[in-house]
Structure formats: structure tokens, C-alpha cells
Amino acid sequence: MTDAAPPIAPPLIALTGIGRVYGTGEAEVQALRDITLSIRAGEFVAIMGPSGSGKSTAMNILGCLDTPTRGSYRFSGVEVGGLSRDQRALLRRHCLGFVFQGYNLLPRMSALENVELPLIYRGIARGERRELAREALTRVGLEGRTHHDPSELSGGQQQRVAIARAIVGRPDVILADEPTGNLDTARSREIMDLMTSLNREAGITILMVTHEPDMAEYAGRVVHFLDGRIARDGSGGADAA
């Protein structure tokens, strides 16, 4: 498998003229001004940019947690702006996986239970859920840690649990918001290797916000945000440095 899908594939994600405004009148803030971005299935895209450049806002919109003030967001051809809150929840449930900087695991629940969580909302029976969760934990290299609480795991291990939770439902896209932000270099590299292998082997599209150029190097494409606009959009590797 190559790291890019065939060029004829229709875009999985298509943002056209997206704007996001917070507040009104004097307090109005233009978080996103005019974003047009198209991502094909199977891409690994890093989003970079200084604080306040709108990359988090863009991630929220891409993750269907927020809706744009103007413009169009099509996911697999579906206009997300026209979906209700619950429909967007269903889209997240079935097509998206989230990885956060702070892991966001539920405390006092074992790694296995954390990974099971998205499947509960899909109404999958307990036995099958256990099985799938165990598989996902094995995929991220934590087969021996299934019954540990997050507090008993290292940062890198917690992030692996979070990744297992993101992939357990076989999503089309993983949205990772600074996934290595709380980790040291060695742990960061392990996480990025894992993400790369998920991208290459499982064909999961990955959108990752980072401000570390080293991490962006893992991506096949780097999009730079600045003041709510896309400043630069190019291939990864040396280009990002």
C-alpha cells in the first residue's frame, strides 16, 4: 500500500469557504476566515500553525463537534452543516475516532472498559465488545495491560489506550489533537510510529494537529494555518522543516 490514495478517489473530506465566528458585535472573533481544504481517504495530514491560527477550531469542525458559521463541510458527500446534533453524534460514533493531547480516558475504569466505551453506544453485546476491545489493545501493543486503570499506566501507555479507543470502532478518520504534546521524544516517536502504521496498514485517514515539526514529518501532507486561513499546504517530510 502507498501512503496516498489513488488521485481519482473523491475527497473524503471537503471544506469549502469555511468561516467560524465567535460572539457578536464588538466581541466578534473570526476564528476561521476562509478555509478550503480537501482530504482524500487514506491521507495522513498534519495541521500546523501558531496559537490562535484557527487549527483547533478547524479540528472541532472536522470532528463534527462544532458547526461552521459559513461555508460547506461535506463528509463522504454528506453536508455536515445540515445535520442535527444527534446525527452528528452518530457520524462521530461510526466514522470518526478522537485522540487528545491529555488522553481523556475515564478514570477508575480499566483500559479495557475505556476502549469498550464507544461500542456500548453502538449497542454491541458485551462479549463481542470485550473481544473487539482486546483486539484493539493488542493492536496498540497493550495486550498485557487490559485491566489496569489509566492511573496505573504511563503517559505513552495511556495515549495508546486512547488510540485503541479511537480505532476500536473501525473509523474512517482519526482526529488527533496534539497527541504527543504531553510525551517525551522517545514516547512521541512510538506514538507516531503507531499512527503511521494505522494509516498505512489499516488505511485510516489521519488528521493531526501538532506544533512540533518533528512530528509533522511523519505526515504525508502538512497544512499550515495562519490567522484563520491556510498559509501553506504541501507534502510532508523536508518541506515541513
Binding site: 453524534a89 452518530l90 462521530r92 481523556n104 453506544y121
Partner: peptide
Amino acid sequence: REIGIRLAIGATE
């Protein structure tokens, strides 16, 4: 935070 996580991973209202 827990509720936020649950909503993010696809829990409906």
C-alpha cells in the same frame, strides 16, 4: 469532562 468524552465518541443526547 467525562460527559464531553462520551459525547465526542458518539453518545447521543
